[in-house]
Design a protein around this nucleic acid. Sequence first.
DNA 1: GTGAGGATTGTAACCGATTACAACACGAAC
DNA 2: GTTCGTGTTGTAATCGGTTACAATCCTCAC
Lengths: 271, 271
Amino acid sequence: MNIQAVADRARVSTATVSRTINGSNKVAPKTAERVRRAIEALGYYPNTNARALGSGRSRIYGLIISDITNPFFPELVKSFEDMAVRNGYEVIVANTGYSPERTEVCVQRMLERKVDGVAVMTSEMGSHLIDRFHRGQIPMVFLDTGDPANGISNVLVDYAAGVDDAVEHITSLGHTHIAFIGGPMDLASARTRRQALLASLKRKGVSVNKSLIEVGNHRIDGGRAAMDRLLTLEERPTAVIASNDLTAIGAIGSLHRHNLRVPEDVSVVGF
Amino acid sequence: MNIQAVADRARVSTATVSRTINGSNKVAPKTAERVRRAIEALGYYPNTNARALGSGRSRIYGLIISDITNPFFPELVKSFEDMAVRNGYEVIVANTGYSPERTEVCVQRMLERKVDGVAVMTSEMGSHLIDRFHRGQIPMVFLDTGDPANGISNVLVDYAAGVDDAVEHITSLGHTHIAFIGGPMDLASARTRRQALLASLKRKGVSVNKSLIEVGNHRIDGGRAAMDRLLTLEERPTAVIASNDLTAIGAIGSLHRHNLRVPEDVSVVGF
DNA sequence: GTGAGGATTGTAACCGATTACAACACGAAC
DNA sequence: GTTCGTGTTGTAATCGGTTACAATCCTCAC
């Protein structure tokens, strides 16, 4: 079952079938109709591999993320895939597992599959890997990571605005003892969030007590440990802003263990 | 940059390069070494689309799931992908969104990409869709769904054993007022869990109060609503077994709202 | 030296599409 | 009746591999 069979049945050449399928306007309406009927009758569908080889377009997008089990990603993956499928594309998702070696493997896979474009949402993407995409003429989009550079698009999160919203919310509730549990300091986006928070608090005129600034690891256990430490303080915080949701979940877990209610006793905001 | 370039540089034919890459044992060690050096020097990597077309094997597996944002799936997707990549395969994930129409689209995508096999973990896979995979000679594995049939493999969850463990745990804590929040009754696996639970309780000699058997929807809101209803009962349960984790999360949320502690006041088990 | 037979390598067809280019049909203008 | 141009269709090369089959090379026994 291939394009030849359709061509034979419709009494045209394979070129005409191909043009009909791909919506080229160089096909007479009557002919196109005949081809469509043949396709219907035979239950034909094109072989994507052959299409990719012939046209040089794989109609596959790559999506490189850190780890699908981080609850931040599934929503993203779903939306990305939805949009891709709606435009006739397929998506290959690759998890780097936060490891540079595995990231290298991910990149290689994308190159071999000749993806038509790649979206990257992980910080393990070194410049030598970016170069390889460049050499393969593959367009890249960085999501929330990476520096703007030639030929690269960046979709960035407005951390300042987000943190401002969180601070606004917390201060409007009357809190003055506000703690922050940040992410790992080697993560650019974590540093950004931290700086944005300090700036925001300063603007609000909230005095910033260094001991209320904790460091987590963007995982649940880090949030729990950080909250545990905060609860040993003389002056406990009445509100906590966490650098990401897993950290917030960890913090809430710690609070529950210490028999504190959220939000009655302590307010928690996750970014 | 193609196989011809490598062949020229290594002074062999493209056939020999292909055989070297694919690990055919019909290549002399000395020749293979020369080919490998040429590949290295040129930074060559094969075009997967051409490989797929020539060999008839796409080296892609399909994975059809309901919805990646259901926290049950990411772990599965990750393991599946890990294993696939380790064997030189790629994975295309498709979400049916619980909709039969979208499931049809998913199946079509898999067929067009000529996947070498497909794993299905969704209950929307009607028999006419299964037939299409059969016609395409594509091996299928059903995970936790589907009936055993010719040419289909099923990986099933031992619900009875799992429910037994839950009941054993709960009864060993001394609970006797045990509630169950099941899944939607039109879901085979939900019915199975429910029956297994009733059987298990009976075996343990725990009397089963019909009013303690609630129906959820396998989402958080359903668990919450069911727990709300259970808390209006004269004799409240002291323990709850939920048909899946989202249901359990909803139940816990409801308990917190009613100022009940988990597990101090009420024990909750999610399946 | 010769022939057998296994190991290695090359030749070329093939996978199923896309697409540049050529060819043709047809109507209008002269 | 030519010629031209536009619209439609066909021919055949091409994409980059895989692989059946043919050809060649060695090695070794006799």
